[in-house]
Structure formats: structure tokens, C-alpha cells
């Protein structure tokens, strides 16, 4: 097993867009290019030889990789073909795969994760909103071109949700703190890159001075992150959505046994607080607390 590739917070990845000719893919590919992201190829099975936004289209990532150097593949494909598309990218040797697609069956994603782990590839998502390194590049479905939302700065933002993460980014831009990077890990029950993975990247990243962690009830990723928060040198401010969401016992005993916790917003806030993170009650407090912590304003 090789070491898993980190996300590129420093350099700029050369990108292949899978499903480049779709409606949403067209909208977002244009914006990625406008923000300076080097999109070198597109992939749509059966459309090899065509062009989209002036970019050559191939049948497979493997074919694209024979003509271009590719660092990152981003998936804009229907959920039923997402597994095949992700495996195509991983087997072609692409080391970072960003899965924006939602509603991919969990079993399909577990096959993707097994293959990715074996080959040392980093998967972000599924159901990820993507990532933004303001002023450098962005990959995904985020309003990265809006200077009132994303501007180069000192806070690393890691969020399950695109909408909540964007709202906190608006506040960070207003406060003047800005973002060193925004990473959307995705809202699916299992995701390829966890809060903890991203915290490790932020701890190493020289431009990140503090971290905003935006979690949600359910699962165990916030609890896992807390273990690492306790050892970090950089301050972490967290907000956990779902404090008032109706409680469910849907996943039965097994969910709680595997997670090792109840997975409620309150239990996540408690373990993060114990680990030294500061906890925001509402999203607007995240940037306020960060401004205090960083003695900014």
C-alpha cells in the first residue's frame, strides 16, 4: 500500500473533468477555467475527438492520461456510473479524485475506496462540494470567483456541507480573515477524505493559521477529528449543525457500536470542546471567535 496523496494546497493541479458535456458540468467547468484552474482534458465515453470549452474530450481517463499530465480528476457523472468513472481515474494513475456526485450507492463507494487506498489515491467525497484555494484554483461547485465569499487569507475551512461552508466563508471574507483553503468533505455516510485528514493537511500548511470545522450530526468523523484537535498547534473553531434536528434511532445498535458514540450534535460538540476546540452555537459566531483567537480586528 502506498501513502495516500494529500490534497494540493500549495501547487495547482492539472485537472480532467469527467462528464464535461453535461449541463451542470459545462456551467462549472467554465468557471473553473475562469478562476485559473488548468483543465487539460474532458472525458465522456463515446465523445472522443470532440471539444468542450476548447478542451479535448476523450473516452476514458486512461486515454486522456496518454496525452496529458493529470493530477486530479473531478466527477460530474450520473450516480449509476460514478463507480466506473472513479475506478477509471484511479486505475489510470490519477492521484486525486474529487467526487461531487450525490446519491452514489454506499457499496459502490466502498469499492472505490478499497481501490484508491491500494493505489495511494486521495478521494474527496462523494457528495463533496469540492475545494477552493482562493487566488489559486478551485475544483467543484462553489462560488470561488466571488471576492465577497472566497478571498486569500489565513483560515482553513473544512465542511461537510457546501451551503453551510459557503455561509461561513462569507463571514470570514467580511471579517477580512479570508481562507487559506476550503475543503468540502461531503455529506455521504462514508467519505474518502475525513475531517481528520484535512486537519492534518491544515496543521502542515504554512498559510493556515486557524481552522473552522463545520460538522453535522451523525457518523463518527467529528469524534475522530477531536482526537487530533487535542494534539494540534493551531486553534480550531467548530460548529455542528443538527442540534435541533429530530432524533432518529435509524441505524440501530450497530451504528452506535461502530461509531463508538451516539453521534448527536451535542455529543460531538462535547468531545470537540474537551479536545480544546472552541464551539460556536450559531454559524455567525465561527468567524467572530476566529477573529478573537487570531487577535484580528
Amino acid at each position: 500500500m502506498s501513502a495516500i496523496e494529500p490534497l494540493m494546497l500549495d501547487g495547482i493541479p492539472r485537472v480532467v473533468v469527467q462528464g464535461i458535456t453535461g449541463r451542470e458540468a459545462s456551467f462549472w467547468t467554465e468557471r473553473m477555467i475562469a478562476c485559473g484552474t488548468p483543465v487539460v482534458a474532458g472525458v465522456v465515453p463515446g465523445k472522443a475527438g470532440q471539444q468542450a470549452h476548447g478542451i479535448p474530450v476523450y473516452d476514458s481517463v486512461a486515454a486522456a492520461c496518454r496525452r496529458h499530465a493529470v493530477d486530479l480528476a473531478v466527477l460530474f457523472v450520473p450516480p449509476r456510473v460514478a463507480k466506473a468513472a472513479a475506478l477509471d481515474a484511479i486505475r489510470a494513475g490519477v492521484r486525486q479524485v474529487v467526487v461531487l456526485v450525490e446519491h452514489i450507492p454506499i457499496h459502490d463507494m466502498m469499492e472505490v475506496f478499497a481501490e484508491a487506498e491500494e493505489r495511494g489515491a486521495r478521494v474527496l467525497g462523494g457528495n463533496s462540494p469540492g475545494l477552493v484555494v482562493p487566488g489559486r484554483y478551485f475544483v467543484g461547485i462553489l462560488p470561488a470567483w466571488e471576492p465577497t465569499i472566497f478571498r486569500p487569507g489565513s483560515v482553513g475551512v473544512v465542511s461537510r456541507s457546501g451551503s453551510l461552508g459557503t455561509l461561513v466563508s462569507v463571514n470570514l471574507a467580511r471579517t477580512g480573515l479570508g481562507q487559506s483553503a476550503f475543503v468540502g468533505i461531503g455529506g455521504d455516510p462514508i467519505v474518502g477524505t475525513t475531517f481528520r485528514d484535512v486537519l492534518e493537511m491544515f496543521e502542515r500548511d504554512p498559510r493556515t493559521e486557524a481552522v473552522a470545522l463545520l460538522g453535522e450530526l451523525g457518523g463518527a468523523l467529528e469524534e475522530q477529528a477531536a482526537e487530533y484537535v487535542a494534539r494540534m498547534t493551531k486553534p480550531v473553531v467548530a460548529f455542528i449543525a443538527g442540534q435541533t434536528a429530530p432524533a432518529g434511532t435509524r441505524m440501530g445498535h450497530a451504528g452506535a457500536i461502530v461509531a463508538g458514540s451516539a453521534g448527536t450534535a451535542a455529543s460531538k460538540m462535547a468531545v470537540l470542546r474537551e479536545a480544546g476546540a472552541r464551539i460556536a452555537d450559531v454559524p455567525s459566531q465561527v468567524s467572530e471567535i476566529l477573529a478573537d483567537v487570531l487577535c484580528y480586528r
Binding site: 451551503s163 453551510l164 443538527g242 450534535a265
Partner: peptide, 22 residues
């Protein structure tokens, strides 16, 4: 009415935090 599960839950939390009930 909000968009995205994360923001929707956060909005409900804020309603509760400021003394209302969603």
C-alpha cells in the same frame, strides 16, 4: 426554507438559539 441539509439544520439551530421554534 433553506438550501442544503447542512445549512437547513444550521438555520433550525439558529431559530432555536434565538428563542424560536422551527
Amino acid at each position: 426554507l433553506a438550501n442544503g441539509a447542512g445549512l437547513t439544520m444550521a438555520t433550525m439551530d439558529a431559530v432555536n438559539y434565538y428563542g424560536g421554534r422551527p
